[in-house]
């Protein structure tokens, strides 16, 4: 039953460019890009409880790195540009993550917020590389002799890379590293007592999160074909946070669901820019009030009674002694 659903979903994703109008193929690419960012952000904020308001900055670093590589080395395959985006952004994540070890909660949020502003300023100032406010045209992604010049071709590139990133994230969270991140979120003291090197894993979460967002940035550059600094403002960072809260903190499938819903919504509200923050805010508040744990935990609750999972009612716990 489950594998049938997955197979049908996969077939749908593969056939999408043939079934859907061109614009919706572009939109689907954007959903996958945002899903990769959401997974990366969730590993940092949802799994490890380090809130970041600076992920638009990581996305920009990845996007500009890939675009610059593609411009300066026109024959290079897209894989090289994406790898460069991944590595440069991961390095930036490391450089930001180490000083952020000393910060928590609001202070960490402020530091990452500032990081986002710094990245935009850097793009404006490094105009020899980035063309600053004029914006940077991104050449078509190349794969050997082919140029991925259509929305369909770009969609398949994004889909393949996205599938690999999702697969890796699902593997990661099921093993020792994912559990260590969750342990840190739940109780740093108990995590240490279990032999977990908290500082190392917090930094690792920053690096992995930045790497994911950097790859997404590289894909974003090729999908939209034109970069300018105002696309990476703080509101984009807030959108990413909204995606993981709506989807579910600490859930990879939830990240994807949140990214899909908010990307489509964002697109449908494109004609009503002034009302967009209002609608997003309302959705966030409603999801925190009525769906704590996001789409992921709502889906789990729907499935649980069917599968007959044993559940002890909360509240049967006696109070503190």
């Amino acid at each position: 039953m489950r594998s049938l659903t997955l197979a049908m979903g996969a077939a749908g994703l593969l056939l999408w460019p043939w079934a859907a109008p061109r614009y919706f193929v572009f939109l689907a690419s954007l959903i996958v890009v945002n899903a990769i960012v959401a997974i990366g952000l969730n590993l940092l904020s949802g799994y490890t409880n380090q809130l970041s308001f600076g992920h638009a900055g990581f996305l920009a670093v990845g996007a500009y790195t890939a675009a610059i590589v593609a411009t300066r080395a026109p024959g290079a395959p897209v894989v090289v540009a994406l790898l460069a985006a991944a590595l440069v952004t991961a390095l930036v994540g490391l450089l930001l993550g180490v000083p952020c070890l000393r910060l928590e909660g609001l202070y960490l949020a402020m530091a990452t917020l500032a990081f986002g502003f710094v990245v935009v300023e850097a793009i404006l100032n490094l105009d020899g590389l980035t063309r600053g406010n004029d914006g940077l045209r991104v050449p078509a992604a190349r794969l050997g002799p082919w140029a991925l010049a259509t929305d369909g071709a770009r969609y398949y590139l994004v889909l393949v890379v996205g599938a690999a990133m999702v697969w890796a994230a699902l593997n990661l969270v099921r093993t020792r590293t994912g559990r260590a991140l969750l342990a840190i979120r739940e109780s740093e003291v108990a995590a240490q007592a279990s032999g977990i090197h908290v500082a190392r894993y917090k930094t690792l979460a920053f690096v992995i999160s930045a790497l994911y967002t950097g790859v997404a940035g590289g894909l974003f550059a090729f999908v939209v074909g034109f970069l300018s600094p105002d696309a990476f403002d703080v509101f984009l960072s807030v959108d990413f946070i909204a995606m993981i809260i709506l989807g579910g903190l600490g859930s990879v499938p939830g990240s994807m669901a949140g990214a899909a819903v908010l990307t489509v919504l964002n697109d449908s509200l494109a004609g009503f820019q002034n009302y967009r923050p209002l609608v997003f805010g309302a959705i966030l508040i409603a999801s925190m009030l009525f769906m704590p744990g996001g789409i992921a935990s709502a889906a789990r609750r729907l499935r649980a009674p069917l599968a007959g999972h044993p559940r002890v009612a909360p509240g049967s716990r006696p109070g503190p002694e």
Binding site: A169, N171, A180, S194
Partner: peptide
């Protein structure tokens, strides 16, 4: 945790 050895990369690659 302390008795397992899989790092992030090996874990992610499954």
């Amino acid at each position: 945790h302390a008795h397992l050895s899989a790092g992030a990369l090996r874990g992610a690659l499954g």
